[in-house]
């Protein structure tokens, strides 16, 4: 491309600097050339600087090769940059070259930024920005903060505030996944249903603060005696559920017994009349006692009832499921 090279000014200037003597006709021609050049430059300056530049190339420049193209490209550039400055990211620029490429690159980055913000708004908090320096730092800090907030909210939604254990909602979400995994891996899964013995008496005799102390202590004990792969939940009131993936009945019963023994040795020195507490456990195992969350919970609940009936402070395993 040699835009502007055909403008008469080059010939005119060349003639003058060569020092050739011009006759009247040549002088007029050079003067005309200067005039046209000046007009052309004014026109291009107008596109760059003025509020309302001419919309079209004047007829006398139509015959100057590439001038009209250059004029139109500058006009396109002007329209495009105006749109960008006003936040319109859908404008298109039918122009090639370095400046056009840089502006399109800016537009691409801004459009990607828009998409990323939309993605964050839709809940995708993995988006991170690597454009616009300080803005990127601020954006990424904001998303980090949102992620922390979301994690906290999520944790609050699935955690029992008194004991710090997971709650019934979490268990409801988790059990189908755990059973699906157990099925896939062909492994058993033990479910313990735990109920604090004579808990009502503690509350009635010593007050709710004493009852809360027992529940918090049991929560701490279950957290300490379960593995990362286990799920320990407060089921409601003084009832707790512990899921032990991979544990068959005998292993589940042994661990339940360990927990029971540990709990009965816990001391509550503030509760003079009841310095110790106990719990009863009903144990059901997948798949022997049920293959759905509901069936397992029911089986464990029935076993827990038998433990209570059998004198409390003991572990009972569910009876084998019988086919209908």
């Amino acid at each position: 491309m040699h835009r502007g090279s055909d403008l008469p000014v080059h010939g005119g200037r060349g003639g003058l600097t060569a020092g050739r003597r011009a006759d009247d006709s040549e002088g007029r021609s050079m003067a005309d050339g200067h005039d046209r050049c000046g007009t052309a430059l004014s026109l291009l300056r107008s596109v760059l600087y003025d509020a309302t530049p001419p919309a079209e190339v004047p007829p006398e420049f139509k015959d100057v090769a590439d001038f009209e193209t250059l004029f139109r490209e500058l006009m396109s550039l002007r329209t495009y940059t105006t749109a960008l400055s006003e936040g319109d990211l859908n404008a298109s620029l039918d122009m090639r070259g370095r400046v056009s490429g840089a502006l399109k690159g800016l537009q691409a980055n801004l459009r990607h930024l828009t998409w990323q913000t939309q993605a964050v708004a839709a809940g995708d908090l993995t988006q991170r920005v690597q454009f616009l320096g300080e803005f990127a730092t601020a954006f990424n800090t904001m998303v980090d903060h949102l992620q922390e907030l979301q994690d906290q909210l999520r944790d609050q939604a699935v955690r029992d505030p008194l004991t710090g254990l997971l709650n019934r909602r979490y268990l409801a979400e988790t059990m189908p996944r755990e059973l699906a995994r157990a099925t896939r891996e062909g492994r058993p899964l033990a479910l313990l249903m735990i109920d604090v013995d004579h808990f009502k008496q503690v509350n009635d005799a010593l007050g709710h603060a004493a009852g809360d102390q027992v529940l918090r202590a049991l929560g701490g004990l279950l957290r300490a005696m379960t593995r990362a792969s286990d799920v320990a939940c407060r089921w409601g009131g003084e009832e707790f559920v512990v899921v032990l993936p991979g544990a068959p009945a005998d292993a589940g019963a042994r661990r339940a017994e360990d927990m029971r023994l540990a709990f009965q040795t816990l001391a509550f020195p503030d509760q003079a009349s009841r310095a110790h507490s106990t719990f009863s456990v009903g144990l059901a195992v997948f798949p022997a006692h049920g293959d759905t969350p509901e069936a397992l919970l029911e089986a464990a609940d029935r076993a827990l009832y038998r433990a209570k009936e059998g004198g409390r402070n003991c572990v009972r395993v569910a009876a084998q499921a019988t086919s209908a």
Binding site: M95, R96, R98, S100, G101, A102, K104, G105, A108
Partner: peptide
Amino acid sequence: VDCWCTGGRTCR
């Protein structure tokens, strides 16, 4: 629609 080889700085 846009390429380095048409003067772009990014391929679109």
